[in-house]
Design a binder for these strands. Structure first.
Lengths: 157, 157
DNA sequence: TTTAAATAGTTGACAATTCAAGTGAATATT
DNA sequence: AATATTCACTTGAATTGTCAACTATTTAAA
C-alpha cells in the first residue's frame, strides 16, 4: 500500500507489473552493444575490433600495464586478455615482456605502430561520443558519469 | 579560452587531458560486464548463461517473438540469436515454429520447463538489482533510466 | 503472370571467448 | 632451509559468436 514500494514494483524483474523498458540494466546492455557496434564500424577499416581497441586505449593512457591490470580495467577474464595481447603482439601493435622485478608478471606496452594506429582511430571515434551526448552540457555529462560510477561501485562491493 | 569547450576537452578521447575515468562509455562497458558477471553467478547453477537469460526474459514478457524481434531487443546479430534459440530448444526451454501467417518467420515461445526455469532464476536475480541501486529513490532510478534511454536514442539515429 | 527484389532465417567455416587444468615465480609457513 | 600456498599468467579443449554465402518465402515491378 505504501507509495514507494508499490512504485518500485515495476523495477523488480520477478514482479507481474515489471516493465523491461523501465529496467536500467536492459538499457545499459543495449547502450553498450550499440556503442560497441558503432565503434566496430570505425575500427574495422583500421583492422581493429573493440577488444583490441580497449586494450590499446588503456595502454595509451597508462603507458605500461600487466595482463591483470588490463583484465581489471577492461573487465575481461585473464585467458581472454592473454590471447588478445598475444594476437596484438603478432600484429605488431604491442610489445610483451616479463617484468624485471617480478618474474610472474607480463608487461605490455604499445609499439610505435600501435601508437600510430591508436591516434588514427581516435580521429574517427569522437563522432560516436558526440552523437551520444548531443545536447548535453558539461555538468550533465559529469552527472551521467557519476551515476554510472555509483552503480558500478555499488555492484562491486 | 571559452569555459565550456575547455571543460569538455577531458571527455574527448583524442585529447591529451583525456581522463578515462570521466568517460561515460568506459563506465557503461564496465557496468555492463560487472552486471553480466554477477548474473552469471546466479545463472550458472540453473545451467543458464546471460544470452539464454536475455532471450528467456524477453519471451516471458512478450509471450511470443520472432528471431528478428529477439535480435532487435537483445541487440544481437541474427545468426547469433538463431543459434542461441536452437540451443535452448535442444535443452527444452523453448518451442520453435514457423509462423502460420508468414512462412519466413520463426516464432519462439517458452516451454513449461522454460517458464519454471525463468521463475526460479528470477528469485536469485533481484539481489543484483537491489545491490546496484542501493540507496536510490524511485525518482532517481527513473532518472537513471531516462538518461540511459536518451543516450541510446541519440546513438541510434 | 513472370521476373525481380526484399525479408527472414539458416548453415558452415572461422574467429574469439571461456573453462579447467596446468606452469613457474614469489610469499608465507613450519 | 624445505615445504606449502598464493599469484600471475598460459595452454588446450570446448563453447560461443560472427561473417559470408545460401535457401525459402513474400512483396513489388514489368
Amino acid at each position: 500500500m505504501a507509495g514507494r514500494s508499490e512504485k518500485l514494483e515495476k523495477y523488480r524483474p520477478a514482479s507481474d507489473n515489471f516493465e523491461i523498458d523501465e529496467f536500467p540494466f536492459y538499457w545499459v546492455a543495449r547502450l553498450n552493444s550499440l556503442y560497441a557496434m558503432e565503434m566496430e564500424k570505425t575500427l574495422k577499416p583500421m583492422n581493429m575490433d573493440i577488444s583490441r581497441w580497449r586494450v590499446a586505449m588503456l595502454l595509451r593512457i597508462h603507458g605500461e600495464l600487466s595482463i591483470s591490470d588490463i583484465a581489471e580495467h577492461a573487465l575481461g577474464k585473464l585467458p581472454t586478455i592473454t590471447k588478445i595481447v598475444y594476437r596484438m603482439r603478432d600484429e605488431g601493435l604491442v610489445d610483451v615482456n616479463t617484468s624485471e622485478t617480478d618474474g610472474r608478471v607480463t608487461v605490455v606496452t604499445l609499439t610505435d605502430q600501435g601508437h600510430e594506429n591508436v591516434e588514427s582511430v581516435l580521429e574517427g571515434t569522437q563522432s560516436v561520443f558526440k552523437k551520444a551526448f548531443k545536447g548535453f552540457t558539461e555538468p550533465q555529462i559529469r552527472k551521467s558519469n557519476q551515476l554510472l560510477r555509483k552503480l558500478f561501485d555499488n555492484l562491486s562491493d
